[in-house]
Nucleic acid binder design. Structure first.
Length: 358
DNA sequence: CATACGTGGAG
DNA sequence: TCTCCAAGTAT
């Protein structure tokens, strides 16, 4: 079945004009705002993004503001969104724009693609939405919709499958309204042509779709990759001084939860972890200001990342053991704090803190 | 190319 | 409770 491209575009864009989601970043064509919205939207649902986006634009209205942002403030603003390297890369890219493009966000696709944190999808999205570049922005939605339109069975988990989808979309995209074309397909994908429900009754593309009203639709796209989390076991040490402040450390600048703050964590195997749960003392304490003679098991919790599952036993130094520490022990990476509102904390630490204040 | 990288919503 | 998924990118 051959698709009439002009008619397809007309139907799709007419639907978009009537039904498009009223998103805050769609009020502007400022590439900076489009960029921020696209980065935040990676692997994140739109409803989650909106309040973060509003706060971000208010705090950093221009690229220059972002380039000069303070790292901790930026991370704090990103707290809870996940994939924190996105925030670090945003600032790095803003600095690149200052230095390499005179502070003006580039309009050329390859220039955009050169920026830190921007890959093929985001570059095409920004180029098409902000600069009318005729480039398909191929995200999960477009992959799903396209796979159903053409009954494409290539496994989207494999990088080499990309060209099949790209070829089809290049043949369909509107050269007059490429940005709206991309966003229209994203909206169709997120509101109608969903992973486990195709809803062809309300789809403006049903006439063109090889899998319209077919029970097969939900089996597309084909995706093989499945993730399995690794179980990791920790004791988290809640150490309070006589002022009621907790001892926190900054995590390394690379890897999981880079640069975020944490209660000291002691990694252990499952057997040791279970021993701690049953009240036994921790075998190997980390390098702390003073040794802790007496600890008590408080409670346990779990936290699931995309690739790890943390089992955390929260351990408190009992009140009699509250200790003071010499000021010179504390550095930029170690501190005592009662108010957590000023430092970036990730999921596990937030949960631990809530547990302590229960 | 496979894996690391967060979190919250939906069924 | 469990599994999959959501506007991906870096390495």
């Amino acid at each position: 079945m051959m698709i009439n491209t002009e008619k397809f575009q007309a139907d799709l864009l007419a639907w978009y004009d009537k039904h498009k989601k009223p998103l805050p970043w769609r009020l502007s064509r400022d590439p900076y705002k489009i960029w921020i919205s696209e980065i935040m939207s990676q692997q994140t649902q739109v409803e989650t993004v909106i309040p973060y986006y509003e706060r971000f634009i208010k705090k950093y209205p221009t690229i220059k503001d972002l380039a000069e942002a303070e790292d901790a403030e930026l991370l704090k603003l990103w707290e809870g969104l996940g994939y924190y390297s996105r925030a670090r890369n945003l600032k790095l890219a803003a600095i690149e724009v200052q230095e390499n493009f005179d502070g003006v966000f580039p309009s050329d696709l390859m220039d955009i693609l050169s920026l830190k944190g921007i890959g093929p999808y985001t570059a095409a999205a920004i180029a098409s939405i902000a600069f009318d570049a005729v480039e398909p922005a191929i995200d999960g939605n477009l992959l799903r919709v396209t796979s159903r339109l053409y009954r494409i069975s290539e496994d989207i988990s494999l990088g080499r499958s990309r060209k099949v989808f790209e070829e089809k979309l290049r043949g369909l995209i509107s050269s007059e309204r490429p940005g709206d074309f991309n966003q229209a397909l994203m909206d169709i994908g997120s509101t109608i042509c969903k992973p486990k429900q195709a809803n062809c009754d309300s789809c403006p593309l049903a006439d063109y779709c090889q899998l319209a009203f077919s029970e097969e639709a939900v089996n597309f796209p084909v995706k093989t990759k499945k993730l399995k989390q690794k179980d990791l076991y920790y004791a988290a040490l809640a150490l309070q001084n006589s002022s009621g402040e907790y001892y926190l450390e900054k995590r390394p600048s690379t890897g999981l939860l880079a640069n975020m703050w944490t209660f000291p964590l002691v990694e252990m195997n499952k057997k040791e972890y279970e021993a701690v749960l049953s009240g036994e003392a921790i075998q190997s304490l980390p390098d702390l200001p003073e040794s802790i003679s007496r600890t008590a098991f408080l409670d346990k919790l779990t936290h699931i990342f995309s690739h790890q599952k943390w089992h955390i036993a929260v351990i408190q130094a009992i009140p009699e053991d509250r200790f003071e520490v010499a000021e010179d022990f504390l550095t930029e990476d170690k501190l005592w704090l009662e108010d957590m509102s000023a430092i970036p904390l990730a999921g596990p630490q937030v949960k631990i803190f809530e547990l302590l204040n229960k």
